[in-house]
Structures are given as C-alpha cells and as structure tokens.
Amino acid sequence: MDMGEAIILAGSAIGAGLAMIAGIGPGIGEGYAVGKACEAIARQPEASGAVTRTMFVGCAVAESTGIYGLIIALLLIFLKPFT
C-alpha cells in the first residue's frame, strides 16, 4: 500500500466518521417529535392512532438526512470510491 492510497483510505474513514455527524440532527429532531407525540397522546388519548401515524411519517422525513449521511459513510468505507 503506497502512501497515496493510505492517505485516501484514512481520508475516507475520517470522511465516513464526519458524515455520520448527520445523525445528530435526526436524533434531536426525532426525539423532540416523539416527545411532542407523547404529550399529544397524553392530552388526547383517543387520537393516538393518527398522532402515531403522523409522528412516524414525520420521523421518516426527518430521518432521511441521517440516512443520506449513512449512505455516504457506507460508500466511503466499503466502496472506497476514490482509490
């Protein structure tokens, strides 16, 4: 393994780690959303079905940024596109 390849690999690994910082946003956002959903269900238990459904869809939308980060990280680690 020459020096250039090593640098690329190290960069890919660091990049993957940085990409996963994207997980912070969805984590906070979804936690907030679930907390609000819990409050909503506590206030109006009969609407729990609709609240849960909406919450999951919202979580899924919020999660997509995290998923993009995950995809980038996976590509960097396993496919090493720059080597």
Partner: peptide
C-alpha cells in the same frame, strides 16, 4: 429521489 433514497438507505444500511 428522497423517498427512494430513504427506503434504500434504511434497508441496505440495515443489511450492511
């Protein structure tokens, strides 16, 4: 694109 990527990322990521 977001719909497809989300589904793909979740399942493929989980698989990996």
């Amino acid at each position: 694109a977001a719909m497809a990527l989300r589904h793909f990322g979740n399942i493929a990521g989980g698989g990996i």
